[in-house]
Design a protein around this nucleic acid. Sequence first.
DNA 1: CATTAGCATGGAG
DNA 2: CCTCCATGCTAAT
Length: 695
Amino acid sequence: MASSSSAVKVCFNSSCNQALEVPRQGWLCRTGDFADLCDRCASAFKDGKFCDTYHLNTSGWRCCESCGKQIHCGCIVSFQMFILLDAGGIECVKCAKTEYILTPNPAWPSDPHFLHRPAERISDIPSKSWRSIAGSGPVPWWQAPSLFNAYKGRHELQVTSSSLGQSTRGDPSERFVNDSWRVSAHETIGNKTFASGIQYDGQHNLFKDVSYQSFFHTNATPLASLPATFVLHNQKVETGNVSGIHVKRLCTPPSVEKQCFNNNGSGPSLENQAYNSKARGETRAHHQPLQRYWSQFTDQEYEQLSGGSYAKITPLFEKVLSASDAGKIGRLVLPKKCAEAFLAPISQPEGYPLVVQDLKGKDWVLQYRFWPNNNSGMYVLEGVTPCIQSMQLQAGDTVTFGRLEPEGKLVMGFRKAPLASSSEQGNETTNTRISAHVESLKDGIVFNSMNPDGTWSEVDKISIYAKRKKGGKMCSNSKKLKFKEEEMLQISVTLGQLQGLLRPPLANAPTIVLIEGVEFEDFQEAPIIGSPTAFSTDNVGSLCSTEIEPTPKHVEHMLPMINRENPESLKTMEGIDAPADLTHLEQQVGSSVKNPAQLLYADVICYTQIGNSNENHTAAPDQSFENDPCGEKSSCPTFKSQNIDLNMQPEREEEPYSVSDSMGIMRLVQESTERFMKQHRLSVNDITDSDHKKP
DNA sequence: CATTAGCATGGAG
DNA sequence: CCTCCATGCTAAT
């Protein structure tokens, strides 16, 4: 308990300190325990008069902007009593609730205990508070850094199976307390304590997840669909040759099928704004944004967007600009599901201004609107012309949207369309799929990067080729393309396998958790993918730093270990729209393989890092903008490090890569995968066939 | 007349 | 057949 552990307990209220005979439960402390209070203090707390009684002479009293009521804002006791407004000031929860239609997030148990949980407060933040610039105050839950993950997210949930087992049988609030608060390990960042990813932000009275950014928000997230975690820690790895890996992953957006509110044709509404849509019976196929919209940020973009601080950026979605998007009309049509999944619901006909930060740190205010122009309507960003011009984008280029953590601010990157002449770009007005083969990567890693010469990698090139062959017709260079596609496909499958191997977290077997009838796995540590720096903080990182140079054989040895794992731990996942074989395979790997896979990943990374360390290419294309009034570019350090580019392109004869190294990792991955697949009696064709069974 | 805002239409999946 | 979305069309400014 939070109160004294001495023999005689006293009231937790320091201005009371009365001896406790029968402690009564007070507020939730940051330790996860409830403050033990005497009867009088507990009553005052229960009646919402604690601050009025005991904090009258302390600082921190402010007036509700709406009703003028005095609210104490300076203590943990009262932090659930008000919300901070972006425009400044505070508003009492009562006003906030009466002014807006607010319903509890169904992701959260409706237990009365949760009325005192910070996260519910976040969900209660009225639109008034988030329609201003994010980051100036508490961010809305849909922009906040996965506030709900703290409870539901596998990455964040660091609890023991016993506690979960108990809690799942107990009442939800107790589950929350037990699992996400009490049991959590505490760490300290700066002067703030947080518990397994939940950081208490004393300034904003918010609890935020800080350790890992998870893309899934609720239960029932299929393992195989779990996206990579883009965590860019404050420190880069500083180990010998390790200087950053240019890994970019085709990233699954935050478990979108769970985020989409009930889209029953009535458009977005506050009632349905919750990320969570569990038990709505929606299928992934219908509510997950197409993978062509999955956001991909390069390391460079990360660095630029985060101001060089390597803050966390949650990739949200991206879109290839159509002619009309990039045209003078200044309207960017947003993919509907992306808009509904990632942007705050529109409650007014005129929409609301959306502040988006570009790579230079410049804020653009775009009007986010909904057009009910037909049955389904569409979402548009208006006023994008200056922004697009600033970035010198045109049709065919890709804009990438993400969310800067922890502010929750929307950020926007872009990719120029590779290999497309201006005329082609002008003519390429149809935003078809990026690439069937890129899409076929499903959850796979895209070893995709910017090349030293500022061009984009083969994946993107193939994307463009694929765009040309609308209607399934191959264009003139189809032969070469076909070859490349086949090769890409093979790579992608391989990497898809690898991805499966990479998914497991870094330590311990998962705890199978049954929450609200849905199983999911909780790992003691989050799988860390896509961010090389993540390795600096764990034992695998130390493995990397030991400068062991694993050989392909070394890695291959990991695979038999994988095979020895007990396949009975496999679990059925729902809603995976990867091909069945691959899905199954990934399930197997993802759910049953633990340390071997981690080692494999570590080894691959190490191997790659070491193997490529003599490359000294800088993946820094000239992305300078026309207007750079603030000279932000200088403030955004260029990606000077030796980007270890896992974008193997063995067929690129003109590439200045170290062929042996690239082929080395290539062979490593392929051989490992082939071996693995052999052991699973699978062939590449099994997977590729199933991947292309679409009619 | 030019631009903007909003809706309609039709191709693609 | 349905949904999505690129873009055309037109009334309003």
